[in-house]
Nucleic acid binder design. Sequence first.
DNA 1: GAATTATATGTTACATCATTACGAAATTTG
DNA 2: CAAATTTCGTAATGATGTAACATATAATTC
Lengths: 164, 164
Amino acid sequence: MASDRALFPEPGHDHGSCIALGFEHAEAACDGRRVRFTPNRRAVFEVLLSDHKPLSAYEIAERIDWRGRKGGPVQVYRALELFETLGLVHRIESLNAYIACSRQDASHGAQFLVCKHCNRVAETCDSRLEKDIQRLAGQAGFQVHAPVVEIKGLCPDCAANANE
Amino acid sequence: MASDRALFPEPGHDHGSCIALGFEHAEAACDGRRVRFTPNRRAVFEVLLSDHKPLSAYEIAERIDWRGRKGGPVQVYRALELFETLGLVHRIESLNAYIACSRQDASHGAQFLVCKHCNRVAETCDSRLEKDIQRLAGQAGFQVHAPVVEIKGLCPDCAANANE
DNA sequence: GAATTATATGTTACATCATTACGAAATTTG
DNA sequence: CAAATTTCGTAATGATGTAACATATAATTC
C-alpha cells in the first residue's frame, strides 16, 4: 500500500508557491461575485496561508498589522465567514480553528486528518467515504447537507517519533 | 432500501425506559473502576437522559437543582469529562454540546446525524465507514485515534415538512 | 477505629471563542 | 452626482471552557 505522505507538506517544500497560488485562487474566486478582495480580507487570508496549521480567529487577529486601527475578532470573523461560503477556508470544528483550503477546484466536500501532536492538518477529498456517508444517511432517511469528518490522531512524522 | 427511521426516536416512544436503562447502564459502568455515581454526576446524567437533544454544559447546569450550593459549569464539565472517558456521553464538536450515549455496548466508535432544524441527534456505529476512515488514513501514513463524524442535515421528519 | 491516601466537591476568577448593534466610510449603480 | 450596496470601525456583550486552591468525603492501610 503506497503511502501518500505528501498530504502533510514536507518541511522543505516550496511554500512561496503555496502562497502565490493561494492568492491567485482567492482573487479569482472573489471576482464576478460582487465581492472585493479588500485589504482586510487579504490580511486574513495571508495569515492563514503563512502556515499549514489551523489558527483561531484571535490568533489571526493578533498576527495582522492593523496599521493604527483597532482591528479585532469581528473583522476576522467577517472575512472568515465570507471565505467559508466561497470554499476558500475551512473551519475545523474540533479545534475551533480555521485553515486555508488546499485545493484549487470548486466547491467540494472535504475530510481532515488532524495531528494531535504537531497540530498540522491535512485535507482530503475521498469519494468512497462520501458515498458511504450518503448510504448511511439514506438508511436513516436523513438528508445530508454538510458532513463534518475530522480524524484525530498522529501524522506520519509524529507517529514515527512516538515509536522511538 | 428500507428506511431505519427508528434511529430518531418516535415522539410517542417509551422514554421512561430510555431513562431507566440509561441509569442502569451508567451505574454498571461506574462500578469496579474506583468511580462513584455521585449525586452531582447523577444530576448531570439525568438531565442528559431527559431528552434526545444535545445540551451545552451551561444548559445542563441551568436545569440542575443545586439545592442551595452555587453549582455551575465547573461541576458539569467534571462530570461530562468522566462520562466521556467511560463512553457514556458523547460530545458533538460542531455544536459544543453533549448527549447521552444511546448504545449499551462497551467502548465503540460512533457517527452522528445532526438535524439542523429540530436539533435532534441520532447515533450510529457503521463499520464500513470506520474501515473507510482507516483506509483513508492509512494511505497518508496517519495513525487514527478518534474519528469525529458529524453529518449535518435534515432528519426524516424535518425533511418531510420542508417539502410541504 | 485512627491515620493515610485517593477521590470528589465548592468557589472564585479567568481564558477563550463568537456575535450583536450601529453608525460611518467606500464602492458600485443608475 | 444621487441612491443603493457593500464594507468597515468600534464598543459592548454573550457563550463556552479551565485553572487554582481549599475543603470535604470515601476507601484503604495499619
